[in-house]
Structure formats: structure tokens, C-alpha cells
Design a protein around this nucleic acid. Structure first.
Lengths: 201, 201
DNA sequence: GTCTATATGTAGATAGAC
DNA sequence: GTCTATCTACATATAGAC
């Protein structure tokens, strides 16, 4: 494993354990038994390291989406996709809790607006498909609202999870928040769709 | 105004403008034209300052709740309460974005679990009352889910707002997120209740 | 590419004079 | 209460050996 990748992985681990705020680049280099200067060679600024981590996260999410679109649309498969996305976010939770430091990167190096747009575009396609195959129906609750809800949920659940349930592990959190999501979907699911929700309730 | 209170107010302002991460105690003392040592006299650690700010925020929220409970229950009055709470959160947005630093305080000095419990207890009373007076009905969507939703929404909206819509001002954000909330309430409102939602849609 | 050594600027925090 | 002076730790940057 290349030093660059080992730095990224160790940074993710430490960010998750202690938080970005309490993790110095010295801590990272110390655990890796490399010099701070060496770390500086690979990532001249802490923000560059952050950007690299975000890129890796985004890549994993893209793969998850691609996997979904490779198969037939269906509520069960979509919920599996979301669970996959939640697990990805959990793996990078330390970064998302460091919002304050993150913002400076999101504003400049990272085109967050584009990511946001893509996510909403995907959601619209997915929901349309699920309506088409008869799993969802948007009579009482509108499609636009559900897109807003899903965007909100996917972006923020990990923060609430770490604040409100810091003692829970990954699987408990996934179960809790997928259950939350499933209950929201109850209001827009057909009878056929509701069958797919059952395992998450 | 006492120096202590001036420190708190200046800190809130700077946290909102630049974020906690990029605001040093030196910055605060410089704007106030006092020495860093003097600031340390009032708040020996930056975390103590954070705790004081959180206390003030919590006090303002408590007042808002008290104001609601002083009058008759009703969906319109409840939505006004939420709008009030959102405005409070906006006023302290810098602190909430500093989640990473916040966590160390929440875990130790600040009994966040108790605050959380109280909030959920309030929500249950409020929703029961609104059901009683005929504004809400929990047939398709359960009361427990709505409590989870409201707790999630109130805790996280400001973070999504600052990430996704950093260019919007207070009133635009309040309008947007109250609209989001109102659309969720559509699914649990009686005809009588829906009249109260109209102004937020 | 990787490392040591080192330098600079800034952070939070403390000690002691007034 | 307020100040100056100072301590320690950190992020960041650079020079130069291997």
C-alpha cells in the first residue's frame, strides 16, 4: 500500500475516533511512523488531505449508484442502495462532523453544488422509475417533497446519529435510520411497494 | 453591558461570520479591544465560552416553548413556535456548524441527553393536543414517526441550510424550511389543520 | 519518494503585576 | 478586572541528505 493511501486511511480512522478537530497531522504521521515532513510532501495542507478523503468517499458513492442503475428498478433494490450509502457515510463520519473545517474546502476546492445537483437528478430518475414499476405513488405526498426529504436525510442523518446516539455502532444506526426512512416511504408506497419496506420496519 | 456578556455576543457574531474553527480567542479579544488574558479571566477555556453560549441559546428556546404553552394549542401557533425556534438556531448557526468542537462539550459539561428527552416530551404533548383539537390526525403516518422527524428536522436543518444554501439570508431560509415542514404536515393534517399550513406553503 | 532537521506563525492557556 | 509576558502545542513550509 502506497504511503499516500496509508495516510488517507489513517486520517480517516483518527478522524472517526477523535474527530478532525482533535487530530493533528503530527498524530497521523506518528501512528504511521513517518515524519511530519513526509506527510507534508504528500499533502502540503490539511485541507488537501481532506479533499482527497472526500474524493475517495464520492467515488465509493458513485460506484454504489452505478451498481443500482445496472439493474432493474425496484423499491427493495433502492433501499439496499440507500443502506449502502449510509454505510459509506458512517465509514467517513469523522469528516462530516468536521463541518466547520469542511466548509472551507466545500466552498473552494470542492464543487459541492455540482454534487448536490447530480444527487437530486439521480433521485428524480429513481423515483420516477419506482412510480413506473408500481412501487410508489405520489398522491398525498408530492415527489418534490420526497426529493427534498431524501436529500436532507442523506446529508444530515450521520450528524444527528453521532450527536444523539454516539454509543450506538454501525449496524444499530443503519437499522434505526433505515427504519426511519421506511416509515416515511409508507406514505408513498403502493401495497406492492410496502412489501419491500417490511424488512426495514 | 458587562465584559462577560460582550465577549459572548462578539463570539457569537464571529462564529457566525467565519466559523468557530477560524475564530481564535485573540480575534474576539481584539475586536473588543481587551487583552487575551482578560478574556481568559472570564472564560479560562474556549469550551467554557461555548458552554455559556449554549446556555444562552437554550434559555431563549425555553422561553419560546413557555410562550407556546401559555396559550391555547393550535397548529398555527405551533408553526409560529417552530419558526421562532428556527430563528433562534439561525442566530447561533456558527456554533452548530462547529459540531466537532461542540461534541466534546456536549458529552461532558452539557447534559445533551436531558435536553433531548425534554424536547421529545414537549413534542409528544404538543402533538397530542393538536390531535385533540382536531388539527392533526395520525392515521396513515404514525405519531412516533412525526416526533422522530421533528427532532431530526429541528436539530439538523441549520447544518443543511449552511451547506446547501450558504448564500441565502435568514428570512429566505426560514421560509424554505418552514415550507418543507408544512409539506410534511400535509400528510397528518385534517382539513381544519390544512388551513393553518397555507401561509407557509 | 522518503526522510530529518529546522524555522515561522499562530493557537489556547497561565502567571503575576497593576 | 485588566493588563503584559510567557509557555506549550500545532499547522505549515523549506532545505537538504539518502
Amino acid at each position: 500500500m502506497k504511503t499516500r493511501d496509508r495516510i488517507i486511511q489513517t486520517a480517516i480512522d483518527l478522524f472517526n475516533e477523535r474527530g478532525m478537530y482533535k487530530t493533528s497531522v503530527r498524530d497521523i504521521s506518528q501512528i504511521l511512523a513517518i515524519s511530519p515532513g513526509n506527510l507534508s510532501y504528500h499533502f502540503s495542507r490539511k485541507e488537501d488531505l481532506l479533499t482527497a478523503i472526500l474524493d475517495q468517499y464520492r467515488q465509493q458513492n458513485d460506484q454504489a449508484y452505478t451498481g443500482y442503475f445496472d439493474g432493474p428498478p425496484g423499491l427493495a433494490r433502492y433501499l439496499d442502495l440507500v443502506a449502502h450509502l449510509l454505510r459509506n457515510a458512517y465509514a467517513y463520519r469523522g469528516v462530516f462532523l468536521g463541518l466547520d473545517e469542511l466548509r472551507s474546502v466545500l466552498g473552494t476546492e470542492y464543487d459541492y453544488g455540482a454534487v448536490e445537483q447530480k444527487r437530486r437528478a439521480f433521485l428524480e430518475i429513481i423515483l420516477n422509475d419506482l412510480e413506473m414499476v408500481g412501487d410508489l405513488q405520489f398522491v398525498q405526498v408530492g415527489k418534490d417533497f420526497i426529493i427534498d426529504f431524501l436529500a436532507f436525510f442523506q446529508r444530515c442523518w450521520i450528524m444527528e446519529a453521532m450527536i444523539s446516539y454516539p454509543h450506538l455502532g454501525e449496524s444499530d444506526l443503519i437499522h434505526r435510520y433505515m427504519g426511519f426512512l421506511a416509515r416515511q416511504f409508507m406514505s408513498i408506497s403502493t401495497e406492492q411497494g410496502q412489501a419491500d419496506l417490511a424488512i426495514w420496519l
